[in-house]
Design a binder for these strands. Structure first.
Lengths: 153, 153
DNA sequence: TTCGATGGATGTACTCTACAACTACTTATT
DNA sequence: AATAAGTAGTTGTAGAGTACATCCATCGAA
């Protein structure tokens, strides 16, 4: 009997993992376009980079690349665009002229705050009728999933 | 006292939603690159389209576009590439010469199966030490999130 | 002082995507 | 039947995001 119970367990696990895979994939597919709808002035990537800058109180391009697993050339161009847009400023490290410390401008903070706000509102709306306990569990599961060793995604 | 309890609840909800937002966003940011690592021969979008074709036993390009919220030109090019790669075949509907029914080729099925397998393995590995009950709840939460009316993301 | 390492920028190229304009075909209206 | 309106799909164009390879400037160590 343990045999068939084990088989049932395995089937349940199989189904659950398949669902998780499908739903996470579906979410990922829509994320960019959704960000564009929510805050057209700040792409998902830009938003993410600015958020990290705010979070860290400034950092180097290399740090952004490492944190987000992006190529340094990608970050370089993103940062250049953000600077052009007036959202970030670069300050060359006086002790090491190779590095530039990036930090948000006043305007960058405002734009970020506004985008973060719209983004947050959208998530709140989406989760409006969830119980607090459910939200906590969902948050914990997502965190746990993302923290598992590297990376189906 | 209900006042401060309510405030605490609100704070908890705020935190949980912020975490959900952060973790889902982080996942979305990595999904494409992760797919490329898992199955370089089939991009995330290609994989998704093929999977839907398999699922539906064939459908039209327009159906794919509607289902995945993609522009028809995007789908048209994707399908063209998949056809060039020998993964799908088109058959013009004899009753309505505007439409083409798309279906997987033998080879398309194989490639899809292989990619799905690697993908699935990666998710299983990532979720290996989760309890069955946890998997079920996580799957249910994700499904519920994605099914909520339209769409932070 | 010279050489390897590090931070960053640039050249190039590819994918994904959208919008607009177009063709071919079908259905509805007159 | 003729014409208008709608639908399926393709193509021109353009822009974002990304990576890899290469290059430059600077730093630290042999």
């Amino acid at each position: 009997m343990t045999g068939s119970a084990g088989a049932a367990d395995e089937q349940g696990r199989e189904d659950a993992v398949a669902t998780i895979q499908r739903e996470l994939t579906a979410f990922a597919r829509r994320a960019r376009a959704a960000a564009a709808r929510m805050h057209p002035e700040l792409s998902l990537v830009s938003f993410t980079l600015l958020a990290h800058l705010e979070d860290q109180g400034g950092c180097r391009a290399t740090d952004l690349a490492a944190y987000y697993l992006l190529d340094k050339s990608t970050v370089s161009r993103q940062v250049a665009a953000l600077e052009r847009a007036g959202h970030v400023e670069r300050r060359t490290d006086p002790d090491d002229h190779r590095m530039q410390l990036l930090h948000l401008t006043e305007q960058g903070e405002q734009v970020l705050a506004q985008a973060a706000d719209r983004r947050s509102q959208a998530f709140h709306a989406r989760l409006a009728d969830w119980e607090p306990a459910e939200l906590d569990r969902f948050a914990a599961y997502l965190t746990r999933y993302n923290d598992e060793a590297d990376s189906p995604a």
